[in-house]
């Protein structure tokens, strides 16, 4: 029988690979009796769903911008490069 520590790890593994039937069965048997692990699985799902949306959030963080120094460097470089061509 799995303990919670093993069940928690297996629940995470399930997000990364297809588990063999006996492993899925073991997890299913455990969570059938264990509310904590059921909650853990729910919370992992939320974590996964929200992580997938984090990229859009990062892109729209309007308070983070390149410094003027860096912008000028890039501008200069692009101009130079194009004049050489």
């Amino acid at each position: 029988m799995l303990n919670c520590k093993q069940a928690a790890e297996r629940a995470s593994n399930k997000l990364d690979r297809r588990l063999p039937v006996y492993k899925r069965m073991g997890l299913w048997l455990h969570t059938g009796m264990c509310q904590n692990c059921r909650r853990y699985i729910e919370q992992l799902k939320l974590l996964r769903n929200s992580s997938a949306k984090l990229n859009a959030h990062i892109e729209n963080c309007s308070d983070k911008t390149l410094s003027e120094t860096s912008k000028n460097k890039i501008k200069k470089y692009i101009q130079q490069e194009r004049e050489e061509k």
């Binding site: 093993q6 904590n36 909650r39 729910e42 929200s50």
Partner: peptide, 27 residues
């Protein structure tokens, strides 16, 4: 290998995804 303390249910998890502030916390 048992949880030392019980996990509490997360309240209104579906609302979290609608909130800017939630993503700041995740970040």
């Amino acid at each position: 290998g048992h949880w030392k303390t019980d996990l509490q249910q997360w309240s209104a998890p579906e609302n979290a995804l609608q909130q800017e502030q939630f993503f700041n916390v995740l970040e």
